[in-house]
Design a binder for these strands. Structure first.
Lengths: 206, 206
DNA sequence: ATTGACATCCCCCAATCACGGTATTTTTGG
DNA sequence: CCAAAAATACCGTGATTGGGGGATGTCAAT
């Protein structure tokens, strides 16, 4: 029997979820809350295996609450259920430790399926969310304007080394390092090490 | 009608996939190959919308082939179908641009479902794969206990801003920025902006 | 044979940064 | 409420960096 908790501010939706969960043979609804504050207070006693969490809540947002729930309940599986499917919220929620993300156009079967999926070690996501997540993993294409030597220098920069150390590592003079870095800056259109490193990481140049 | 190509070295499995695809009302199998080399040669003419790609192939591995197919066919949707579910291969395939990843314990319905899912903008994944991917997005636990303000400053550093600009953005004095950065350095055990930014990216603090 | 890209080295100077302090005010937690 | 933590502010010195210039040798391609 899988113990499910529901955190959702809309009365009607909340009742609907509860009804769906309680009608599923292997699920039971052990706790229901209208906001995160009360959920954080009382949920420990309920010992849920899975939390269905809305993130469009007043007060503490669901996303902020994710790490709190996880701290409180160990390895509870949290499934976000929401109307919001924008990149930022999705990634924030998953980074925070949510295990699933569903947009609110759910059939009862899909909801029950998601819960059983997550307890069996899956990560249920709506189609659009899965695509977002998978696309975010894609390596950005190499602009590859940098020469080999410049790449080496950039990598060293990304390791946090100073001109002096880079020069030692590459057996060239500090002045040459300086020149390479100037060229890197020009090509990447940046004006500091920090920017260069940041761009290198964000554009997958390293 | 969705045009499907199959690249799979095992005759029996290949035939099975073809049969499944051809029996689905909205799918048609437009090309079949036993290895990537011949697929890369002939697939352009077939103009598939979706490629089912095995990655345990002799010769060019499926993963290496992913970017080649994508270059050849524009925005074709590639679904990896394989027995291999190890992290490395999964991430490599997705980074390369695959849009779905299924392990080989598929029902015919699941396979057809995955294809329709991907053409509708989803990213079909087996439960275990989805979990792998989602878990990989999780921010590593805060080993360094940066305060909120320190986090903000670090983010600004990662955007390549100087002390002065950070001070302006956060409405504090340059000197305060300095103090925060000193504290960040102490906590992250680094000694320069570049190192801090690098560590921030690598440890997912940003 | 000449051009051009690459890697190397050199000079200079202003601006920025690293880091050692100290100290006050706000916020937060118990 | 009180103590601790966080955020804020300041100083000074020496090291590092950013950006401007120019110069040389190699190697591949035209």
């Amino acid at each position: 029997m899988t113990r499910v908790a529901i955190v959702e501010d809309d009365d009607i939706i909340r009742d609907a979820y509860q009804s769906i969960v309680d009608h599923a043979p292997e699920l039971e609804c052990v706790a229901i809350y209208g906001d995160c504050e009360s959920a954080l207070q009382g949920i420990k006693r309920a010992r849920p295996d899975v939390i269905l969490l809305d993130i469009g809540l007043p007060g503490i947002s669901g996303i902020e609450a994710v790490p709190m729930f996880r701290k409180l309940l160990g390895d509870v599986d949290i499934i976000i259920v929401t109307v919001h499917a924008d990149d930022e919220r999705v990634f924030a929620a998953l980074r925070a430790g949510a295990r699933g993300y569903l947009t609110k156009n759910l059939s009862a079967e899909r909801l029950v399926g998601a819960i059983t999926d997550v307890v069996r070690g899956g990560s249920p996501m709506s189609a659009r969310i899965a695509r977002l997540v998978v696309d975010s993993m894609r390596a950005p294409v190499q602009d590859a304007v940098l020469t080999n030597r410049e790449h080496e220098v950039l990598r060293k920069l990304c390791d946090g080394h100073s001109y002096k150390i880079i020069a030692e590592h590459l057996f060239i003079s500090e002045l040459t390092v300086h020149t390479h870095i100037k060229n890197i800056y020009r090509k990447l259109e940046v004006h500091s090490q920090t920017e260069a490193v940041s761009k290198a990481f964000r554009h997958g140049l390293i």
